[in-house]
Each structure stands twice: as C-alpha cells, then as structure tokens.
Simulated assay, not measured.
Amino acid sequence: MPQAVRLDSVTKIYGGAGRGGRDVRALDTVSVAIPPGTFTAVMGPSGSGKSTFLHCAAGLDSLTSGACWIGGIALGGMNETQLTKLRRMHVGFVFQAYNLVSSLTVRDNIILPLRLSGERVDRGWLEEVLARVGLTGKANARPSQLSGGQQQRVAIARALITRPHVIFGDEPTGALDTVTARDILTLLRSCVDATGQTVVMVTHDPVAASYADTVLFLADGRIADRMQSPSADRVADRMTHLGAWA
C-alpha cells in the first residue's frame, strides 16, 4: 500500500521575499513518509515552514525541487486543472476559518466537492458522515444557525465525503474555545481510529498535537525532530528547545 503522503527532498524557495529582496528557503530538502491511517501533527516556531509544508504536500504550491506524492499519485508534472481535480477527490481540507457557503444548507455544503466534480452522491455514505460528525438532524440548517464547533464539524464532513487519501488541517481548532476544540480533536482522532482516515494537522498548540500519533517538528525549513505517542507536556518542552535543534 502506498504512503498517504510522501515528500522526497522537497525544497521550496520564495524569490525576493526576504530582507533586502533575498530569496527565502521556506523548506530545505524535506523528506517524510506518512503512512495511511495515521494522525500526524506538524509544529514549529513562526517562520519554520509549517504552512509551506502543508501547501506543498497538498499540491497547493509548486516545488522548487524534489517530489511529492498523495496516495501514490505523483504531483510532479500535473497542470493546475489536474491538481484541482486531484485535490477535490483525494484531499480533504479543514481550516481555521470554516469556509462554508452561507447560502447552502449543511447537506449541500458537505456534498459540494462531489457536485463540483460531477460525482454521484452516495446517500448512505452522506448519512453515515452526518452521524459520524454529530450532525444528524442538522442537514437542512444553514451555517448561520450553527455554533462555531458545529460549523467546523460541517467542514470535517465535507473533507470526509470524497473518502480522500488524506485530510489536511491548518490550525483547525484555532478559532474555537477549549472545550469545543477538544471535541473537534476527538472527532479527528476518531476519523483515524474508526475508519482508517489519514490526518495531517498543522498546529501551534501542544494539547492539539497530543491527539496525534506522531509530531513532526520543523525549524528553519527542515525536520528538526519527530515524536511518537506525544503528550502535551513533552511537546511543549520540545518546542522550547527547537532553537538549538541542530
């Protein structure tokens, strides 16, 4: 079985964005393989390359060099139309902002990726996803009628509906209170444990990272360390020492 996500010597350089117009090496020869059915958190100080890692791994940004695969599908050589189709059907996204369409119902927000791709909606799977994220009975509601936590559940359901190779989360609990954030993290954890979904989540929160199987620590665009079976205390302690990671 192929890795859910694989990066091989990925480098990303942004031209002229640094001080004095110098190039910025946001990722520096990063190699990592993320197995299917696992929960990976990506952490690091500001400017460490976390967001660039996610954007490159998800095919949202081009690579300067190296190669990336999603579910065994090589992203190199794809044009933007092909990448868009790949992301729509094989990648789920959950962001800090819920990115729901306010004029659509919960049901229609969830099935939007299928509609955009011209794919048939499996009604049984839709009902299962609604139940899994705790939104049974809310299918006809509008986003404005939901709490922030419920809106994030809609976003997770939308990410699940295509049965993607991987769900990428970019600070998915950043806008939520502590109790609601815990509920959302528990839901993401259950997506991995109950259905074998793969989750890769960028976060700055050691408590959020403790829900993962593995934490990847980035510093200066490189993987500085990784931690298995993390606890919030161990993650927080490692974060305080990343400046001297080398």
Rank of each mutant, 00 (worst) to 15 (best):
F39A: 07
A139H: 10
E171P: 01
R87Q: 11
I223F: 05
S144F: 00
G16R: 13
G77K: 10
F95H: 06
T84H: 02
Y98R: 02
F93P: 10
K138G: 00
R25Q: 14
E128T: 05
S48M: 11
L7I: 03
D170Q: 06
L126V: 13
V133E: 12
A159E: 05
C191F: 04
V215I: 03
R158K: 05
G243H: 09
D183I: 08
G49H: 15
M78Y: 08
A246E: 11
R132C: 03
A67H: 14
L146R: 12
L100A: 05
A194Y: 00
T40I: 14
N140V: 02
R153D: 03
E128N: 04
R234H: 13
T186P: 00
L126G: 07
G76I: 00
R6A: 14
V101A: 13
R163E: 10
T186I: 00
N140H: 11
P35D: 15
G92N: 08
D108N: 14
F95D: 05
N140L: 08
Q145M: 13
N109C: 12
S190W: 01
F168N: 04
I13C: 05
G72S: 05
E127M: 07
F53R: 04
L188A: 07
K85Q: 14
D170L: 04
G149F: 08
K50C: 01
Y14F: 15
G76R: 07
A209D: 04
L218E: 01
G92A: 13
M227C: 06
P172Q: 08
L187G: 08
D205M: 02
D205V: 03
V154C: 06
D8R: 12
G71L: 05
L114D: 12
T195F: 09
L86G: 12
N109E: 13
E171C: 03
A97E: 12
T240R: 15
P143F: 10
C68G: 03
P113M: 11
K85G: 07
D213H: 15
H55E: 09
A244D: 15
G221H: 09
R132A: 13
H241R: 15
L63D: 08
L176K: 10
G77P: 02
T195W: 15
L83D: 06
Q228W: 11
V192I: 00
D213M: 02
A157E: 02
V179M: 12
V94W: 03
V129Q: 01
E127W: 04
E80H: 03
A41L: 07
G21V: 04
L104C: 09
P2D: 10
Q82F: 02
A208L: 01
E127R: 13
S190T: 05
V10L: 11
R222Y: 09
T198S: 03
T52W: 13
I156S: 03
P2M: 10
M227L: 15
L135F: 11
E119I: 05
D8V: 11
G149Q: 09
V179D: 12
A244C: 04
G148W: 07
L216D: 08
M1K: 10
I110H: 09
T186A: 10
D225I: 03
A236Y: 12
D61K: 02
D122W: 02
H55N: 15
S9H: 14
D205F: 02
Q150H: 08
R87I: 07
A33F: 03
Q151L: 06
P230C: 07
K12E: 04
V200G: 04
G174P: 01
L176V: 08
D23M: 07
V129Y: 00
